[in-house]
């Protein structure tokens, strides 16, 4: 989806449609919560819509120990509450602080934007994109949306900052943003780079097979050498005492 902040008027229809689609209790909410999978926050005169970014290389998917989170080819990052063990690593790791946890439940799950996966399967748009009256949110293929975003920026360079947020931030996201002001002023974390976050842990995890194989051989070798040394020392000691004369010495 492409979200053009210059077109958003803050009518909150997207949140209403989202709540209806996901059967959440109605009522305007300013922040993401268990009952708001998308929310508008206001920065000066601008409204910015938050939701799951549905990253191309999702951090949450990479950290989940039981693969309860998965990235579909069509875009959505889906969650399976039946697999989830409740370790909450996804809450800790998500660079956008998206997943929300059912803390008050004794069988808690996480809640977040589902990218209206059932609607996409039926060939429909996500509820928020369909509801948006001004075209601030449009839905389409990611490649086409990137072209459209680039066209808008080059057509009116004074209106936009020359950046499509989500094009390659944290490895690229399904949500793309255009803004008239730098994204750092809109509460976006400026410290997130272009490298997908899972690469950070993969650099450590990829060494696991090496540690196992090299370490195993090395420890085995050290055991063999030190064991041999003990044996030799014991043999020499016994020889010096003359307790066990070498068999070859006997005529």
């Amino acid at each position: 989806m492409l979200i053009d902040l210059t077109l958003c008027v803050g009518c909150n229809v997207c949140q209403g449609a989202c709540k209806e689609e996901n059967q959440l209790p109605p009522g305007e909410e300013k922040y993401l919560s268990l009952t708001a999978y998308t929310a508008l926050s206001k920065y000066n005169d601008l409204y910015i819509r938050r939701m799951c970014q549905h990253c191309d290389v999702p951090t949450c998917v990479s950290v989940c120990p039981v693969a309860a989170l998965s990235k579909a080819d069509a875009g959505p990052v889906a969650y399976d509450g039946e697999k989830c063990i409740g370790c909450r690593y996804c809450l800790q790791a998500c660079p956008y602080h998206v997943p929300k946890y059912e803390w008050s439940s004794t069988k808690p799950r996480i809640q977040k934007c589902k990218f209206c996966a059932p609607r996409l399967a039926k060939g429909l748009q996500p509820a928020c994109a369909e509801a948006c009256p001004t075209g601030a949110t449009i839905f389409g293929e990611r490649d086409e949306l990137l072209l459209e975003a680039a066209r808008r920026v080059s057509a009116e360079p004074t209106k936009y900052v020359p950046r499509i947020y989500g094009k390659d931030d944290v490895g690229g996201t399904s949500m793309l943003y255009l803004s008239p002001v730098p994204f750092e002023q809109l509460g976006f974390d400026a410290r997130l780079g272009k490298i997908p976050m899972p690469m950070l842990t993969m650099s450590a995890l990829s060494k696991v097979p090496n540690v196992l194989s090299v370490g195993g051989v090395m420890l085995g070798g050290i055991w063999w050498i030190t064991n041999r040394r003990t044996e030799v020392a014991a043999f020499e000691a016994s020889e010096q005492k003359g307790e066990t004369p070498r068999p070859e010495d006997k005529p």
């Binding site: 989940c64 120990p65 039981v66 995890l205």
Partner: peptide
């Protein structure tokens, strides 16, 4: 669900390791 990591794997996850 504590036994899930036994049967549901994700080799990309440090938590799984």
């Amino acid at each position: 669900h504590f036994w899930h990591p036994l049967v549901m794997w994700n080799p990309h996850s440090v938590m799984c390791e």
